[in-house]
Amino acid sequence: MVKHDEFEVWYTAEEFPDTFHQTGRMVFTADALAHALFVTGRAPQDQAAYGWTSVYEWLHRVALIPAYVRRAPTGRLARSDLARSLDRSEKVALSYALGQAMTGVFSRQVVSVRFLMHVDRYAARYGIRFAPRTGRRADLFGERESGGWVVAEAKGRSGNIDDELKDTMRAQKRTVRSVGGARPALAFGCAAHFPQYKGVPDHLKLHAVDPVEEEPEAVDLPADPDRFILAYYEPFLAALDAGKEEPVLDGYALASFGPFNVSVGVLAPLVRRVRQGSLDNLYQDVIGILDTHLPASGPNRFSDGTMIMSKWQRALDQDDWSTEPTETYPDWWTGPDR
């Protein structure tokens, strides 16, 4: 059983290397979901030109969690009744955000990606232009803790997924041929969806595919490790500037956003190094700081040296996620088969 503050989401990994389990279970907190929403945002990060755009975007996205996400008695992630009553365009926006976030959670927990970023955010930060013919492009890219670049395509659906969506993910995720001159170690697509079962509340599941085929129009992403790291941490530093400064906590510089009941933290030595502004050896310096200062564990502390702390327990545990509060659960409700 999961803890009272944790979600449980089952995934299916199709066509992945043999080192990955075909079916698995992810357990994570609302803070981990909020962190994933942060790193997968696509707002421009040039603070001089755009100010705190990324912070406002993240606060808008993160507010979706207490508004629309609920924890079922089994720990499964369900949508609130309000979420299920949204109109079509609103449901699409919610599904899109959850698809991005769950791809982030899958990338961190299953694929061991320490740094993950939206391709468009990196491209916008450094003025990278892709050829007009590349209309389809994967959403996210990042680096595994063991080394090697990863490319991911994220999808979200409010209902079941079909073969057409799987084929779309197969095509889009292989539209990045190389990152920084190296072929991606993994390039996969993830679809977060809420299967519909008559008489039973829907809960979130994840379907991932990782075929080896490459699109004929695949592009090369000219990523540089030092510039990648700078772009990765810029929105976190912007959040520290935008929020209310709090006392340093366990070595983390901290800022709170009162009405949203959420705080953002970054390891203080990491903040100092990134704010120096020098790109020389920035990547290696950051890795060294993480190796030296990263705590051994913590429910709201992440391997990139950041921290997210939320106070959404009351909202997440509200019994407003099912219009049939007295219904009984079939045996398969607690297993991975559905």
Rank of each mutant, 00 (worst) to 15 (best):
K3G: 09
E6P: 00
W10F: 15
T12A: 14
E15G: 03
H21Q: 13
Q22K: 08
G24A: 10
R25G: 12
A30S: 09
A36D: 11
D46R: 07
S54Q: 05
V55K: 01
Y56R: 09
H60G: 14
I65A: 04
R70K: 12
G75S: 10
R79P: 00
R88K: 11
S89C: 07
A93T: 14
Y96D: 01
A97S: 05
G99R: 02
M102T: 09
G104A: 12
V105D: 02
F106G: 05
F106P: 06
L116D: 06
M117Y: 08
R121A: 12
P132R: 11
R136P: 04
D139S: 07
D139T: 13
L140H: 09
F141S: 07
E143Y: 06
G148A: 08
A152N: 09
A152I: 14
R157N: 01
G159W: 04
I161C: 04
I161G: 05
Q172N: 08
T175A: 11
R183K: 10
A191M: 06
A191S: 06
A192K: 01
H193M: 01
F194T: 07
Q196P: 03
P201E: 11
H203V: 12
H207L: 13
V212G: 06
D226C: 08
F228L: 11
A231D: 05
G251L: 14
L254P: 02
F260E: 11
F260A: 12
N261S: 09
S263E: 08
L270K: 01
G277P: 02
L282K: 00
L290S: 05
Q313Y: 09
D319H: 02
D331Q: 14
D331H: 13
W333Y: 10
D337Q: 10
D337I: 15
R338I: 15
R338C: 15
